[in-house]
Design a binder for these strands. Structure first.
Lengths: 218, 218
DNA sequence: TTATTAAATTAGATTGATCTAATTTTTCAT
DNA sequence: ATGAAAAATTAGATCAATCTAATTTAATAA
């Protein structure tokens, strides 16, 4: 099948494409992969030969349908393993990313389908990210950034855009938990600090940086 | 840490040593690893540099204490994952080997210790093989081959020496299950065919080849 | 004990993934 | 529209793991 390295490239390209549907730049990919640009060029040529990416010299590249399928399958693996690690083994949500990065490369349809069943066909991972189904269909999310909302609006906290352990444990410490209903009490003009009302808790003040990493639904 | 390849070499050397405490031959290791002899020589030099094996040119080699520790840790991983796959995910005992070969290379003390706890600190894997504890201690087994026993003896079926899927599913088909108490009714002089009495079942006849792959305790 | 066979090692190549340094292509601001 | 800066690619090396072919070392059988 594909090497771990190839799979990691595919995942990275997928995530870079997610934002805007544009082609991806060599330098951007090199940056997220933590390698130097010529390594990316080399790898892209190999993957282009396998029809995983469409690539035109010096013009950027994007995943083919086949490449997208592989990327989504790996993301499915990653997120299902994260659910396992948190729900079954008792890891915290800020501990599971690196482990899932290893587990996501286990190649077995049978394993993933049994795991999915064992976990009760979860729809989202511990960070609120949607889990693609076995056919690679990813439910479209209608969430928006808390930072884009105005005073008085309310919604449910359903995901994060920053998955770093430091941000996640900051949220734990602040008592902001996935699924909480949040109401915006006030937005400070000067520095865009948000004052939040969490159901059943006292008011919490968070910076713009934090508000800009929280996804809100409904 | 160590590469998957190195870990697989260590595991293979460990298994070859297990039988007799002698040094291992390059050709034997090449055979079980499915590579050609010069690859083994190269790899051994690398591993000798890392003090994982002691190696004297053209004289064979054996694991150092350090090498043994790594090998046992991988075997622990492998067997714990097999328990997970069978007990939690519902795989059959003849399906789990290849999957566990992938899972055993996940590097995380924390993961393994949580998995061990989640599984209830099992002592043996689904094939009856003992699981080393977190310190790498492997309980000595006192089992013997069924083929070495005489008519009239009885004991509990606690393990196999042939782990192939074909042998395991043959046992399923024949109704011979791990934990069964087996009594030897008769051993045919001519071809060493064994007639067995399984508790609560009718008599079963198995070939010497089969009797020679069943481990009996007590 | 010595010649033959078997096993192990060395030599030299290959493949995948990476690097640095040099070169080419693209972008973009004047 | 053209020249400087940025981005991408090519060229040439390196490292890990493997190979084949050639050579050396060890085992063994007459």
């Amino acid at each position: 099948m594909h090497s771990f390295t190839e799979e990691n490239y595919l995942k990275a390209i997928y995530k870079l494409q997610e934002n805007n549907e544009e082609v991806v730049a060599t330098s951007a990919l090199a940056h997220v992969m933590g390698v130097h640009a010529p390594s990316v060029t080399d790898m892209l040529k190999k993957m282009a030969k396998k029809k995983l990416v469409s690539y035109q010299k010096s013009k950027g590249f994007k995943l083919t349908e086949k490449g997208k399928q592989v990327a989504v399958a790996i993301i499915r693996n990653h997120r299902l393993w994260e659910v396992f690690l948190v729900d079954k083994l008792g890891f915290r949500w800020d501990e599971v990313h690196d482990l899932a990065e290893q587990l996501e490369h286990i190649h077995s349809e049978a394993l993933l389908s049994k795991l999915d069943n064992y976990l009760g066909y979860p729809k989202t991972d511990p960070h609120g990210d949607p889990i693609p189904d076995a056919n690679g269909i990813l439910p479209a999310s209608k969430s928006v950034l808390l930072s884009s909302l105005q005073t008085g609006s309310r919604g449910k906290f359903t995901g994060v855009t920053d998955h770093s352990a430091s941000f996640l444990s900051y949220l734990d410490k602040s008592g902001i938990t996935l699924g909480d209903v949040i109401k915006i009490k006030h937005v400070e003009e000067y520095d865009k600090t948000f004052t939040l009302q969490l159901k059943g808790k006292k008011e919490t003040i968070v910076s713009f940086k934090v508000a800009n990493s929280l996804l809100i639904s409904e």
